[in-house]
Design a protein around this nucleic acid. Structure first.
Lengths: 201, 201
DNA sequence: CGTACTTTTGAATCGCATCAAATCTGGTGG
DNA sequence: CCACCAGATTTGATGCGATTCAAAAGTACG
């Protein structure tokens, strides 16, 4: 089992061998509400949603992950509180909750790294919320470049259509907005790389 | 210093005496980018924003907190990475970072509670993101009742206008949507309490 | 070369923001 | 107690921006 670099640095070396790779086909379920959590999942590729059934029986999506942890927040839970579904073909790393949880109590340095990971997650999610509460696509794109970009440059690794989903807009709206921003010389585009034009102060 | 119940249960008793209450007036700053973090802030009432200056000099809001932690994610940082501003008169509890950080390394039970707190925060933020990526006000309201409510009932403690802000819509749109949902017998309203009508299966 | 997917542009429609204004509310001071 | 004010709540009218539906052009891959 080859772990992604981020996971390797985070988890204690003794736990690496306990992790397992797994693949899920489109529409396959990773876990179900009410089951006892045994694994945490780290999405390497594909897309996983966490869903709950609303009071009227309609599905309510709680989370959507293309890369990173799913259900790391059920580390201390007695049972899963939602269903996990691979909505396209997906590759994950399965991490044994029991061992990780015990290790967290035993190894303060690991707990400290784990807290650091959660801190980053909180920060990123807050940025995401702030972005999604902006009304125009233009504002969301500029906020994205300003907050997620490196030095005024953001790389859309998974394609613009996928980016549109993350920004909470249709891909048509995103394409049009990018074209307009480029025409107005506010940004430049090369492949999937968006760069702010530097304003001379 | 009287701590809010949630804080009291979370922090180790030895640290309670080290916390301080504080008040900030509208437009007063809690901390500035680049300064060494000495305090974490827990907002009791009012509203605090974290802001950063964009590449074109415009302010970019990273977070907006009416209740709960601000900057708990800078627990392990060498310096603040943004500015904190009270946008209305605000009351907070100041928590000494140095002592809390040391205590986290020393007290595994506290670290475990802290991880639990961060897990809740991550869950709530993910729900919030999911809600904000819904296109219609109606969907956002129903998602709110389904996920944040108790048994189909959500209580808007801070008023509907404030709720509109959290939902990322104007207060006019929220009022109209609530009126329409009530007229369609999908929800009921009493004061600030929103309840789903039960569908009989 | 054909299939599937992304990227792009066009046109029509709709929901929400915006601007305006009226009503209602709680709190303050005369 | 009443006049008054600041906010919250509500309803109305208008316009814009994003969604939606459609279709064409570009791209990757077997």
């Amino acid at each position: 089992m080859i772990l992604p670099t981020a996971l390797k640095a985070l988890l204690p070396p003794t736990s690496h061998a306990l992790c397992e790779g797994a693949r899920y086909s489109k529409n396959e379920q990773l876990f179900l509400t009410g089951k006892k959590p045994e694994w945490m999942f780290y999405v390497v590729s594909g897309e996983v949603t966490l869903e709950r059934t609303g009071l009227q029986g309609e599905p309510v999506v709680l989370q959507r992950t293309r890369q990173g942890f799913v259900s790391e927040a059920s580390l201390k839970s007695a049972k899963y509180h939602c269903d996990a579904l691979a909505i396209i073909d997906t590759t994950v790393v399965k991490i044994p909750i029991r061992e990780i949880s015990a290790e967290l109590d035993r190894d303060p340095a690991f707990a400290s790294r784990w807290i650091g990971m959660l801190n980053s997650e909180v920060r990123r999610l807050r940025l995401h919320c702030e972005r999604l509460s902006m009304k125009s696509v233009k504002d969301r794109v500029l906020h994205l470049i300003n907050t997620e970009g490196q030095n005024g440059t953001y790389t859309a690794a998974t394609g613009l259509k996928s980016l549109a989903g993350e920004l909470g807009v249709t891909h048509e709206a995103l394409y049009r907005t990018l074209a307009a921003l480029e025409k107005a010389k506010i940004i430049q585009r090369l492949d999937g790389v968006l760069s702010l034009h530097i304003l001379q102060g």
